[in-house]
Amino acid sequence: MDAEEHKLPLSQNPEWADVTPIPQDDGPNPVVPIAYKPEFIETMDYFRAVYKANEFSLRALQLTHQAILLNPGNYTVWHFRRLILDALGIDLNEELEFMSGISENNPKNYQIWHHRRWIAEKLGTDVASKELDFTKRMLFLDAKNYHAWSYRQWVLQTLGGWENELNYCHQLLEEDVFNNSAWNQRYFVVTGSPLLGGLEAMRESEVKYTVEAILPSPENESPWRYLRGLYKNDPKSWISDPQVSSVCLKVLSAKANHVFALSTLLDLLSHGFQANQEFKDAVDSLRPSNSDPPDSDLAKAICSILRHVDPMRVNYWTWRKNKLPLSV
C-alpha cells in the first residue's frame, strides 16, 4: 500500500487516467506566489480532484501518503486521509506503523501528533503501552519536545499506563537533571496518577528526592520550583518543614550558585519563617565586601546580595526589597 519510490507520474499512470487534475487557484495576481516543485504540483492537483469528488479509495489513500511526504503540514490532506481510513475500515494498527516512520523526521509537526491521537483514541487502551513507548523514542531524540510530552500526558489520562511513569521521570532526570519537562511530568504524575495517592501522600518522599537533586546543582531552577509546588495550597507546612529550610542553609554554606537558595529563603521569611542565628551567619558571610552597610533585617540583606549576584534581574530584587515590611 505504501508509495513506491520509482513510479510513473500520475498523468501517465493508467490507474489515474479517469481523473482530471484540478490546478491550484491563487487568483489572478497571487500575493505570495510560491515556487512549487513539479511533483508537488501534480500530486496536489490530483489530490484536489479526489478530495472534491469525495473519493474514498485505496488509490486516494495512497495519494494522501504521497502528499503527506511532500508536505506533512497540510491539514486538509490529513483530514481527508482520516475520512478515507474511516470509510474503508482500514486496520488502524497499520496506520500507527505508517505514522511512526513519518514522525521521526517531523517531530514538531502538529498534524502528525493530532492524527496519531485520533488513531490511538480509536484503538483504545490496548495501545497505551505502545504509545508510551513511541513517545519515549521521540523523547530520546529530544527530551524536551513539547508535542511529545503533550501527547504522552494525553495517553496517560485517556488510555492509562501510569505504572512506570515515575520511574521514567527519574530515568530522564538521571540523564539530565536540568530537564524542566521531566520535572513538570514528575509533578503531573505525583498529582495525577491514580496509583500514587496524591500530592500529600507523596510529599515526604518527593521532598527527599528533590533535595537530593538540588544539592549537586543548586543553580538548577526546576527542582526549586518543584519543591515549592509540593506544598501547593499548604504554605504552613512549607514554612515549618525543616527539609526546606535546611536545603537552603546547606547551599548557602557551600557559598556557590546560591541565587535560588537565597530566593527560597526570602520567600520563606516573607511567609513568616523564623530564621535562627545559623541562617543569619550564612547570609552574612555571603555579603559582598564592597557593599552598602549591612542590613539589620535578614530579608533585606538577602535582597541586597541578590541584587549583587543576579544583576540581570536587579530591578526585580529591588522590588522585592521595597515590598518587605518595615523592620521593627
Binding site: Y146, S150, N184, G192, G229
Partner: peptide, 16 residues
C-alpha cells in the same frame, strides 16, 4: 496554570 505561575497547552502541560 502551573505551580511556577506559567501556563501550558492543556492542564498539566509544561509552562512555555
Amino acid at each position: 496554570k502551573n505551580v511556577d505561575g506559567g501556563f501550558g497547552c492543556t492542564p498539566g502541560g509544561e509552562s512555555h
